[in-house]
Amino acid sequence: MAKTIFITGASRGFGKLWAKAFLQRGDKVAATARNLDDLTDLIEEFGDKILPVQVDVTNKAQTIEAVKKAHDHFGKIDVLINNAGYGVFGAVEEVSEEEARKQMDVNFFGLLWATQAVLPYMRAQQSGHIIQVSSVLGLFTVPTLGLYNASKFAVEGLTETLATEVKEFGIHVSLIEPNGYETEWGSTSASHAQELDAYTNLKTAFRAGYNPDHYGVPAATVNALLQLVDAPEPPLRLILGKIGYPAVKAVYEQRLATWEAWNHVSTEAHGK
């Protein structure tokens, strides 16, 4: 059965790939972008199956109106995919207040506004699937992406909580956690903080570890996303790519070992 999808950040990268895949299989898509010209090719190919909506996800009122417009137009929203986001590159000390706030506004608050906007419709229909595009960097961190890491850790905490709150309404909630992919995320879509010489050695060492095999092919994610959307009982978390799981496993094994080693201190701190 065809589904109605609302997807943010559909102008490029994962968002555009996924929007097109849904349209090709007969789903209806409300696709948001800051510039609707970026959706011209999809509009020309798919006509009234796509509803292009101009949205700045940091504008709460605009986001609420966009979700209402999509619901009024198609009659329902089966799936929300919060895909809009970008990365700020820079050591924590280097990132300005403006850059930090914008990072959280787009990656966290933009996702929150769309989630809050769609929930009344999904509660009323007693069904729905909210998919948040997080990252493996919401599970562990790498240097020089501190604000991006923080935004995705926030998305993880919010979404895990949300899943427990809306289950009784028949609403499923999932986090997509991609490892690195060959998209514009690290190039034209990225923002770079003003550099301090103190972090040159760190950045040089970090970049020296670059391995092109660690970056997946964006088009290869399409089938995984369709499987997630079609699953009757979708998982809360789905890692995309072959690098993510072993990296997450190693990090969590190290964390568990540390907590175990310090557990006597933790227990004493309980006080009774």
Rank of each mutant, 00 (worst) to 15 (best):
T188G: 00
L228C: 04
L36K: 03
L39S: 10
Y86N: 02
R237Y: 11
S191V: 13
N35V: 00
Y121V: 08
F153G: 01
I64F: 15
L147C: 00
S151H: 08
Q24E: 15
T221E: 04
D197R: 02
A61T: 08
Q54P: 03
A124K: 15
H73G: 12
L42Y: 04
R12E: 12
V57D: 10
V57M: 07
D38Q: 11
E165Q: 13
W18P: 01
G216R: 11
M122T: 11
L111A: 15
N35A: 02
N223V: 00
H264F: 14
N201S: 08
A66Y: 12
L147N: 01
I239P: 00
I81D: 03
H172I: 00
K167Q: 15
T58R: 12
E268N: 09
V173M: 06
E99V: 00
A250R: 13
A269D: 10
A208S: 09
V229G: 02
I176K: 02
R25P: 04
Q103S: 11
D197H: 01
F206W: 04
Y210T: 04
E260L: 13
G110W: 11
D72C: 09
D78C: 02
H270T: 14
G271V: 10
I171P: 12
L226W: 06
I64A: 10
P212Q: 13
S174E: 09
F140M: 13
H172V: 01
K272F: 10
L80Y: 06
L158Q: 08
N107I: 12
E97H: 07
A220S: 15
P52S: 08
P143W: 10
E268Y: 14
S151D: 06
